[in-house]
Simulated assay, not measured.
Amino acid sequence: MTTLTLVKAWTTAKERLKDAGVDQPAIDARLMLEVAANVTRTEIVTDPYRELSAEQQAMLEEFLVRRARREPVSHIIGRKGFWKILLRVNKDVLTPRPETEVIVDEVLKAFPEAMPFSMLDLGVGSGTILLAVLAERPAARGLGVDASNEALAVARDNAANLDLNTRAALMHGDWTAGLSDGSFDLVVSNPPYIPTAVIETLEPEVRDHEPRLALDGGPDGLDVYRLLAPEILRVLKPGGMFAVEIGYDQSKAVEALFRAAGAREVKTIKDLSTHDRVVTGVKNPLETGT
């Protein structure tokens, strides 16, 4: 085996991924090289002629073969950055996406740093939204609910690694079932919203490697919102806020569902690609329940 330097390994990896039709080959090649060769991004630039050991080359080779088969980088290296935290991820959870950071951004604008508040994350997955918010808001505490025990195991790991396990409770459950009325100041969710028939047309990284449970939103993609809109309003305290991620063409339909459930100040926030991405609103502050 020819000895590879960091710079040569990166260049070769980049070309191979490009030939395999991978999106963002340079970034993916660097991320896999960092893990395989146990180096930082800075070291690749400042020490480009450092040689990889035979074991490191073999690991990089294995990573490249897997990525060329369109396995997501996050599954290969077992981690993904989101907001300001690093999360462990695997095939049992949705890989965190930058668009979901819009929810975190909206929440942090609404809740000042020192404010104590309680949050609920429905379909918590790897802990993405819940843990990103708790990491920024030391007085907050939260509950994450998921129907997948495998996903909850990943979330528990992430909470412990980020030292947030004393403020983040994680529970196996069916959305809001068993939760009492008016319990939370904030409810967030990134539910499954892709219409069933569209899933087969998605990129192989998503279609073949992400959990179907976290993607499939039923025939029109709106099944979960129909269930969640009245339930989110039920578990929110009067004056409490909600923020849910949506598909790019679902703004009107999801807004209408929340308005019908009694939500106020319902609006849609766009992501950096200027696609409709998050619907937010509040529960009537004067509502005292029935």
Results as ranks from 00 to 15, higher is better:
R50Y: 12
L170C: 08
A214R: 15
I103P: 00
S118C: 03
I76M: 10
V282E: 05
R277W: 03
L213P: 10
T40N: 06
G127T: 10
R70C: 13
R67A: 08
H172R: 14
T95M: 08
V102A: 07
R212G: 03
V89F: 11
Q250V: 10
R277Q: 10
D105T: 09
G21N: 12
F184H: 01
L227A: 14
L4C: 01
A147W: 01
V188Y: 00
A197S: 13
I103R: 00
D163W: 08
V188P: 01
V206G: 07
S126F: 04
L6A: 05
R66F: 14
L60Y: 10
D276G: 11
T12G: 11
E34G: 05
D19S: 12
L179F: 05
E287C: 02
T196I: 14
N165G: 02
R141S: 09
L227W: 10
A155Y: 01
I129N: 00
E231D: 15
A169L: 02
R277N: 09
R234Q: 02
T268E: 02
P96K: 06
E34S: 04
L6Q: 03
T40H: 08
A110L: 11
G281R: 01
A13I: 11
P192Y: 13
R277Y: 04
L17T: 14
A214N: 14
E231H: 11
K8F: 01
R16E: 15
L227R: 15
G78R: 13
L4G: 02
A29N: 10
R79P: 02
V35K: 07
Y49P: 01
L52C: 04
T274A: 14
Y49A: 11
L33H: 06
L52V: 05
D28V: 05
A197N: 10
P204A: 12
P192H: 11
E15D: 09
V45L: 14
G123M: 03
P191K: 02
T128Q: 04
R66H: 12
P285Y: 04
T2Q: 05
P48V: 14
E101I: 12
L86T: 07
R141D: 03
I269D: 04
L236E: 00
S180D: 08
F63Q: 04
L94D: 07
L152A: 01
V145A: 01
L286A: 12
G262S: 12
L108Q: 05
V224E: 03
A243S: 02
T290D: 14
R67Q: 08
R259K: 15
G125C: 04
A13T: 06
P219Q: 07
S126Y: 05
